[in-house]
Amino acid sequence: MIISGDFNHATLDSTLAVFNQVVDCPTRNNRTIDLLYVNVREAYRSTPLPPLGKSDHNLVHLQPLYTPLVQKQPVTTRSVRRWFPEKESALRDCFNTTVWDVLMNPHGEDIEGMTHCLTDYLNFCADVVSPVKTVRCYPNNKPWVTWEVKTVLNKKKAAFRSRDREAMKAAQQEVKHCVKEAKDSYRRKGGAEAEGTTT
């Protein structure tokens, strides 16, 4: 609850003890008579501003002291590799043209050495075909928001800025379709992970 006004000859300190007065800067000359009472302690920070027009009262800028949860959580980074059919085909071609005996023969019966060698080579081929990218994940991002979803959202913003109604309508349909696919994909992935956990 908020009570605000010009308290020139009155105060609520004694009558409403559960309320807190947050304006702590002069609002008229050196007096603080424009007050704001709230029933939440330390809810706002007050800053004086110049009067509006010919008013003899200063303006007061009240900024909430509450920090949203999304700002309390740090931004995280993770590495992702994006696969397309053409990249899968390129990786398959890379494996088909590899002379595997050259990699395996030097290790003889050393299974561990052979495993390390093959793993490093497979990772090398994957990095050549589709390099790993580091992306920043914000706390307010939905888990199903992918690069494709962000791309179509940016297209919608561009259409809005251009004031092209037809492009805006088409972009909205594309966003709707892309979001549905992303949610379905995330749901299927979550279900598969749950099945893998139970087995």
Results as ranks from 00 to 15, higher is better:
Thr32Ile: 13
Ser79Asp: 10
Pro85Gln: 02
Gln63Lys: 12
Asp34Thr: 03
Pro48Leu: 10
His57Ala: 06
Ser55Leu: 09
His61Asn: 13
His107Arg: 03
Val23Leu: 03
Asp110Trp: 10
Asp13Phe: 08
Asn105Arg: 12
Asn96Gly: 01
Ile111Ala: 08
Leu35Ile: 04
Leu59Cys: 15
His107Trp: 14
Gln71Leu: 08
Leu122Gln: 10
Pro85Asn: 04
Asn39Lys: 12
Leu16Tyr: 11
His61Glu: 15
Trp83Ala: 02
Val60Tyr: 09
Asn20Pro: 00
Gln71Met: 08
Pro106Met: 07
Cys25Tyr: 12
Thr97Val: 06
Arg28Pro: 05
Val38Trp: 03
Ile111Cys: 05
Asp34Ala: 06
Asp120Trp: 02
Leu118Arg: 05
Lys87Ser: 07
Pro50Gly: 01
Asp24Trp: 07
Glu109Gly: 00
Pro50Tyr: 00
Cys125Ser: 07
Phe124Lys: 13
Met104Lys: 06
Asp93Ser: 12
Asp110Asn: 15
Pro26Trp: 09
Leu122Arg: 01
Thr47Phe: 08
Thr67Leu: 14
Leu49Val: 05
Asp56Pro: 04
Lys72Gly: 01
Val99His: 11
Arg31Cys: 10
Gln63Glu: 14
Leu52Thr: 08
Leu35Ala: 04
His116Glu: 06
Asp120Ser: 12
Thr119Lys: 08
Ala43Gly: 01
Cys117Pro: 01
Val75Asn: 08
Val70Ala: 13
Val75Lys: 09
Val80Pro: 01
Ser46Val: 09
Ser14Gln: 11
Arg45Gly: 05
Thr32Tyr: 04
Leu122Ser: 07
Ile111His: 02
Phe7Gln: 08
Leu49Lys: 14
Leu59Pro: 01
Ser55Arg: 06
Pro85Ser: 00
Arg31Gly: 02
Asn96Val: 08
Thr115Gly: 00
Val60Thr: 13
Arg82Gly: 01
Ser14Arg: 14
Asn96Arg: 15
Leu52Tyr: 12
Met114Leu: 14
Arg31Leu: 14
Thr32Leu: 04
Thr15Leu: 07
Leu52Ala: 11
Met104Gln: 02
Ser46Glu: 02
Leu35Asn: 09
Thr77Gln: 13
Leu12Ser: 08
Trp100Cys: 04
Asp13Pro: 00
Pro68Met: 09
Asp101Met: 06
Pro26Ala: 03
Glu86Phe: 03
Asn20Gly: 01
Glu109Arg: 06
Gln71Asn: 13
Asp110His: 10
Thr32Ser: 10
Thr97Ser: 15
Glu88Val: 13
Ala17Asn: 01
Arg92Thr: 15
Gln21Arg: 08
Leu122Cys: 15
